[in-house]
């Protein structure tokens, strides 16, 4: 059997709607594991996973680590500071060294667009993109889709607007592809200086005013204003940004319907989103975080070659005889990609 997702998860753009639905459907059973007293199943026992983080991250790294540990994988965290990377080692050398230690998977976060792709072409281990530059953050996109689907039942025909710094946002790209593939209508709203020049060619509606976006949408995914990427002076001030584009209670109250509010975190309260919205009744921001662990468990499981139809069984305890618990630790049936050299 070949893995249903192929060797790697690098982006949502190349996935089929069926593959995305498969991940979301697989995440369902895994959600329940995190609700138990003993949050552990033996599914990935014997697998070794490296979390390779070249960029600071708390939420994503912890979420991946929980997902790995709850599946009983052995994990190692490598961060850019305190590693050979800070001594000038190249990405490809870092990767080859890790692979020489016979690892099964790499979860990579990197500031360069395409870094995960680069790694995946050069090593045989499965590669999961945990955010590459301003390209994609596929597991974030998946957890957003799962959260929206939980509330709406389906994404078909739903109107979702992504608000803020789309230009620099990998979350935005993963959301746009994922939502469109599942049949949603996608809008984007932000100052034009923070939207890609070719944004309309991405197949989305563009809203210049947040009021119009709120009137149109059924859900808002409010992006973090990437303060660290703002050196180029794309907007005059945070104060004006909040006044013109901030998602505030007053603006939401004028909407013709209640809007679901998502935010990938970490939030700049009082900039892109006001606290009473973030903490309000329609905010699903913490559900996103919970879903993040389940979605990442699903991705790990599917990339490791776990048969989708056995995901339900895989969540059983160590006593349950599933195909997963007994599979060969290194997944000899995994589809190997185009590893070179």
């Amino acid at each position: 059997m070949t893995a249903p997702l192929g060797k790697d998860l690098l982006a949502l753009e190349p996935l089929t709607p069926e593959q995305i639905r498969l991940i979301l459907d697989t995440a369902g059973p895994f959600k329940e594991i995190s609700e138990r007293a003993i949050k552990k199943v033996p599914t990935l026992r014997g697998s070794t996973i490296v979390n390779l983080f070249f960029e600071a991250s708390t939420r994503t790294r912890v979420s991946f680590e929980f997902a790995e540990k709850r599946l009983s994988a052995d994990t190692v965290n490598v961060t850019a500071s305190g590693s050979s990377v800070s001594k000038g080692e190249t990405l490809v050398d870092t990767a080859r060294n890790l692979e020489a230690m016979r690892i099964d998977m790499v979860v990579i976060r990197h500031s360069a667009s395409g870094a995960a792709h680069f790694l995946a072409e050069r090593i045989e281990s499965n590669v999961i993109n945990a955010g590459d530059g301003t390209h994609e953050h596929p597991t974030q996109g998946l957890l957003d889709l799962l959260t929206l689907r939980d509330h709406f039942g389906t994404l078909e025909g739903k109107r979702v607007c992504i608000c803020g710094d789309v230009l620099h946002s990998r979350v935005a790209r993963s959301n746009i592809w994922g939502l469109k593939k599942l049949g949603a209508e996608v809008g984007v709203c932000g100052p034009r200086s923070l939207l890609p020049n070719a944004v309309a060619e991405l197949g989305v509606q563009v809203f210049d005013r947040i009021e119009a976006a709120i009137e149109w949408a059924e859900a808002l995914n409010v992006l973090r204003l990437q303060l660290e990427r703002m050196q180029g002076g794309y907007i005059p001030s945070l104060r004006e940004y909040n006044r013109v584009f901030g998602v505030t209670r007053e603006r939401l109250e004028r909407a013709p319907r209640d809007l679901l509010i998502l935010h990938p975190g970490p939030m700049n309260r009082g900039v892109e989103i006001d606290s009473d919205v973030a903490d309000g009744p329609h905010s699903v921001i913490l559900e996103q975080v919970t879903n993040g662990v389940a979605v990442r468990m699903a991705v790990l499981y599917l990339l490791a070659g776990g048969p989708p139809e056995l995901a339900e069984a895989a969540k059983g305890g160590a006593d349950r005889e599933s195909g997963i618990g007994n599979r060969e630790p290194l997944g000899g049936n995994r589809e190997r990609g185009t590893g070179k050299r």
Binding site: E13, S113, G114, D132, G133, T134, H135, E136, R170, R173, P196, N197, A198, V199, E201, L202
Partner: peptide, 14 residues
Amino acid sequence: EGIVSARLGLKGIP
């Protein structure tokens, strides 16, 4: 700078 740079998340040169 164009649709491909927007998709790949690379900074474009107009």
